[in-house]
Each structure stands twice: as C-alpha cells, then as structure tokens.
Design a binder for these strands. Structure first.
Length: 591
RNA sequence: GCGGGAGUAGUUCAGCUGGUUAGAACGCUGCCCUGUCACGGCAGAGGUCGCGGGUUCGAAUCCCGUCUCUCGCGCCA
C-alpha cells in the first residue's frame, strides 16, 4: 500500500462511507470556525473537504497550517448532512473526519494566490510559474496539451508514421529566421545551431527509405515574440511522406486534425464547437488575397471582398477614376443589414480607416430601391446595378494599387466583422492555402528571390523553370489555416538535383553556392531520392485554439517572457570567465 | 530598432484639474466563533507611489530622462 494515499482527492463518494482513508495534497482553503476547521485538500485530480474539531488532539497543529502546505491526512469518510452537501464538488456529498495528519512540506506566504481565478501580472506568474501551474486554468490547459499530444501521437503511429528524434545540435541554416548558436569547445570559434525545424533531417529520412516520418519536434528560432509566437522554442507536429502528391499529404493529415479538434471541442465551452469536415476548403494564394485580403483567412468571418473596379471606370467619381487610370483597383465589401445605420456608424469607420493610413472608407447604402451615401450620386444606374446590392445592404470601397487594396481590404473585412460581431466564435474553420508563388521580386533590389521554401518542387518541374516567367511559376507549397491562425506550412519537396540547381540559378545562386550551403542535402539527393512531401502543424497553436486562449504562454508550461528571458530559472545569464575561455570566446565590452 | 498601454502594500486595484497622516479588497499577524465551502466578526502590521532629475511653498499626480512588463510593427526560408 502506498504510504501517502489510499485515494486521490477526486475519488471518494458515498460508496466509500465509513472507510478509513489516507489522502495527501495541498491545503487549498482553510475555513477556521474556532472550534471546527474545514480544509479543502487539493491534488492533481480534485478537492476533498476535511474536517477537524477541537476535541481532537491534532487540532492545535492543524490550526497552524498555511495555504499551499503539503499534508497527509488519515481519517474516516463520512456523509455530509443534506443541508451541507456541496453540489459544485464531485466529492461534495462526503467529507473526511481527520484523526491523524502529517505536515509533509510547509509553504511560506504566497507571492501569488493559488486558490483564486483572478488575473495576475505576468512577471509574478512567470517567476513563480510552479505556483501558477497549480492554479486551475493553467493546470487544465497543460493537461489539455498532454491529451492533444498523446492523441496525435497515437493517430500518427496508427497511420503508419514512424517517430524519430533528430539532432538538437546541428548546423546553421542559411535561409530563414535568425539561429540560436551554441559554441563548440573542441572547435574553437565554430558554432552549432539549434534547428529552426528538422526540415533537412526529415527529408534525409525519406531518402533513407523510412517511408513516413513524424516527430513532435522542438524548433528554435531567434525571433521577436507575439501573442501567438513564443520566443525561443516551439513544437511542431512535423511529418513527411514518400511517394506522395499534394493530395496524399492533405488526405493523411486532415482526419488527424479533424479528430483532434473534435475530441477536444468541449474544453472550456458551454456548447461543443463545430469543426469543419474534411476535405478542407482549398483556396489559391492569389484568390485568398483577392477574396479575403490575407493568406490566412478566418473563414468564420462571413464577409468577402469583391472587385468593383468596373463600376468606377469612367464614373463621375473623380478620386477613384483618376486612381484607376494610374493602375489602381477598387475593392468592395458588401455587408447585410447596415444600410439604415446612423451616419455616425459610417463616420467612425471612415475615421478608423484614416488612422490606419488609408485616405478614407467610401460606402453606398441601398435602401428601398434607392442608393444613398456620399459616393452614390457619382455613379449611373448601370454602374450601381453592377454592385448587385440587396435591400438594406451597404458596400464599402477601397481604392488603391492592387496589393495595397487587397491587404487593406483584409483589414476592413476584419474590422467590420468585429464591430458587428459577425464571428461564430464556437467553430473551427479549416482551409488550405495552395499554389504559393515560387518566386517574388525583392522590394529593394528588384531581384527574383524565393518567396517561400527553396526546397519546394515548382509546379511544372524543369519545364516550368526553363520556359515560364519565374514570377508566374507556382510551387507545390501550402499552408493550413484555422480560424485565421496559420497552423503550418508544407510542401512537396524538390527531390531532383537538376531541378534544384536550376531553381536556385533563377534566384541567383551558382552551383557552388548551393553545394556550400546544403552539402548534406544535395549529396543525398544524388543517390536516389523518392518523391516526398509533408507539413508541420504548430502544436502550441493547436492547443491555443482548443483552449480558447489569446496568448500562447497560457498553453506552455515554462514559457519565456517577451524579452526571451526565463524569469524563474534566470536565463539567459552571465557565465564564468573560465568557461568562456575554454570555449575561446571573448566578450566585447559595449561601453 | 519603432509605436500604443501599463508600473502605487505580498497580490489585484482606486487615488479627479498638484494640497493634511496615500486608501480598498484578498493575503499576513493576533483575538472571537462547531457546519463552512470566496465562512463570518473585531483589531493590527505592512508603502523610497519603478528609478533619476526638474517645475512648485507643496508632486503618486505636471515636465524631461531612464528601466521593467505587455500589445502591435519591423523580423518570422
């Protein structure tokens, strides 16, 4: 028998009446009635009320207990009288009449109360993360994370994926984010890098013939943080498959994501959230920009953006007309049931648009068969008809150069949606963004460069590279997006050295450039590589969506703060001079 | 690197256009209380108002600088 407990703090009920039991846990709440004390004892599993009265010998010692001390109690399970049953607790029909107790570990006065749900400052929460993790919300989030990860792992293994571990100390990647570097003691002046993703290793495993790879992979990128981006490290469900096309990759991962979301769609929710059924909607990259104004559209938002340039060509609305002649386009967003809103509604949106740097936000309202608003009188009936408005609809216009009009249209779409509360918050809407361009022009140098992953296979292969305008070549490159959050990007990889040399040549790299940058990868491709591809959904973001948390730190047990510091462990920190000398490192004094 | 918000008791916060000894709640300490579950009641301790400078008879409050936290931009093949 375990010396610390016969039961967990969630287990006891009327079916255990009169049993002698032992429980161990934390002192969650103390209610001291003078000659009668109630203690709520808490462990990972639940709460049990313990009661001690003054006649018992241990009473004085119990009286000295502090919150969050760890104790072991033994006593008898007794039924509560009907009027003292607590329906909020699973153990609320019983309590433990304590006759022995032992203080296992005393707690000092807490810097952060554990038994309350009030929000506290992040600095204290991060410094005393072990206390924050005891609190209900964070504790449950981390348990949810475990449930999600173990479910993913089971499904991937059941689907024939093999789990691997890949190196943490590896070489710096020439493309992408900044690397975290680790100095080498044996090779002074040289550095390992932590992997930004196991990209090359998983491809090498495909070349090694393992057919299907997966890993719950730690990734390290030295980027500045955001609410949905933890600095330092994050985890991906990294997977890769051999002898597949893009559709095969989609078919493999869609059921996994759908099921993981569906299994956890009740967490912290009154009603279960709906999850979009697979196959998920596929949207071309260019279409996404045209219709949603972003390459990570939130499909819960019912608004769409359409092109209205034709209504303004040769119209009397000089401002737009002049812009169109200079190459601008007009985008419009139609909104239901707003045409009768007061003038102030439209003025506020216009004001917002100006604050966002736009010239303004024009609009037309269609009520009782007549077109209203400042712009309407400048269009003739045919031009207005083209807008295709129904009764009580409004349409908002954005006029700018194509790319700027698209992106600002995306902002307007989000703004109107949130102002009018059009979002169905209780759903998960997935889509694939496909057909990313292989190349783009660098804004500053005007040179052709890779727009995404240089290892992706160009659509049309060698033929496309040799004969098409590089800027119109698409790649087998795709992102999966859920509720406006980019969960992952992936690709069918380029497994042919001849196509790779050519692809890099277009981006201005010579054969020897690539051989220097990716020696391992290139060498491997020379000895028989299967066609392969994969993707890597972000685990932290999946948990964040399912936990309905706006901040990624709420689903990571030990996150760093925004400045990439671990306030609890005090990292990063200075190191001893002798250690630096051993590594051949000399610090520059900034002063 | 840039922009927004914040920094007052152990914690969460209030403190108006400058004006006595800077408040509340929770927590903490002591006392009272045998049916609470956010137990209740009484009393008490606890503050360099982030830090430095300035304006003023007088600064938590106004001004300048600086540091820290946070949100966003840049960054994120």
């Amino acid at each position: 028998m375990n010396v610390y407990r016969t039961h967990k703090c969630s287990e006891l009920s009327v079916s255990n009446l009169n049993e002698k039991v032992i429980l161990s846990g934390w002192v969650d709440t103390i209610r001291d009635h003078g000659n009668l004390i109630f203690i709520d004892l808490r462990d990972n599993f639940g709460l049990t009320q313990c009661v001690i009265d003054a006649k018992q010998g241990i009473f004085n010692k119990i009286n000295e207990l502090t919150h969050e001390s760890v104790i072991k109690i033994s006593g008898q399970v007794i039924k509560r009288s009907d009027d003292t049953i607590n329906t909020k607790l699973s153990t609320g029909e019983i309590e433990i009449k304590v006759n022995e107790f032992e203080l296992l570990s005393k707690s000092e006065v807490l810097p952060l109360p554990v038994n309350s749900d009030i929000e506290y400052g992040e600095e204290v929460r991060l410094k005393y993360r072990f206390l924050d993790l005891r609190r209900k919300k964070l504790h449950n989030n981390i348990l949810l994370r475990n449930k999600i990860i173990s479910s993913i792992r089971r499904k991937m293994i059941a689907n024939g994926f093999i789990e691997f571990q890949t190196p943490i100390l590896t070489s710096a990647s020439p493309e992408g984010a900044r690397d975290y570097l680790v100095p080498s003691r044996i090779h002074k002046g040289q550095f390992y890098a932590l992997p930004q993703a196991p990209q090359q290793f998983k491809q090498l495993l495909m070349i090694a013939g393992f057919d299907k790879y997966f890993q719950i992979a730690p990734c390290f990128r030295d980027e500045d943080s955001r609410a949905d981006r933890s600095p330092g490290e994050f985890y991906q469900l990294d997977f890769e498959m051999s002898f597949v096309t893009q559709d095969d990759v989609f078919n493999a991962i869609e059921p996994v994501l759908y099921e993981v979301f569906n299994e956890n769609n009740k967490y912290n929710r009154e009603l279960p959230a709906t999850v979009s059924k697979y196959p998920f909607v596929r949207i071309g990259y260019e279409d996404a920009l045209e219709i949603y104004g972003t390459d990570k559209p939130d499909l819960r938002n019912p608004l769409i953006i359409k092109d209205c340039t034709n209504s303004f060509i040769n119209s009397n609305f000089k401002i737009f007309n002049d812009q169109i002649k200079k190459g601008s386009i007009v985008k419009g967003i139609v909104v239901d049931d707003t045409a009768d809103k007061p003038r102030s509604f439209f003025d506020k949106l216009n004001q917002w648009a100006r604050e966002e740097g736009a010239a303004g936000l024009g609009y037309i309202n269609f009520v009782d068969n007549s077109y209203k608003g400042p712009i309407a009188k400048n269009l003739d009936q045919d031009q207005l008809k083209l807008l295709d408005l129904k009764n009580n609809q409004s349409i908002f216009f954005i006029c700018d150069k194509r790319k700027d009009a698209q992106l600002f249209g995306g902002k307007v779409r989000e703004k109107i949606c949130s102002d009018l509360n059009l979002l169905n918050k209780n759903s998960f809407e997935f889509c694939w963004i496909v057909d990313y361009p292989m190349y783009e022009l660098d804004d500053k140098t005007n040179k052709v460069q890779f727009s995404h992953n240089p290892f992706s296979m160009p659509q049309g292969g060698m033929d496309a590279l040799e004969n098409m305008n590089p800027l119109s070549i698409k790649a087998f490159q795709y992102d999966i997006v859920c509720n406006g959050v980019e969960l992952s990007s992936g690709a069918i990889r380029n497994h042919r050295t001849d196509i790779m040399y050519k692809a890099f040549e277009i981006a201005g790299y010579s054969k020897s450039d690539i051989e220097k940058k990716f020696p391992g990868m290139l060498n491997a491709l020379k000895y028989g590589a299967p066609p392969h591809g994969g993707s890597a959904p972000g685990i932290d973001r999946i948990v964040m969506l399912l936990a309905d948390e706006p901040n990624i730190r709420e689903v990571i047990a030990f996150p760093m703060n925004q400045q990439a510091m671990d306030l609890m462990m005090d990292a990063p920190a200075n190191v001893d001079k002798t250690i630096l000398e051993e590594l051949g490192i000399k610090l520059i004094d900034k002063n």
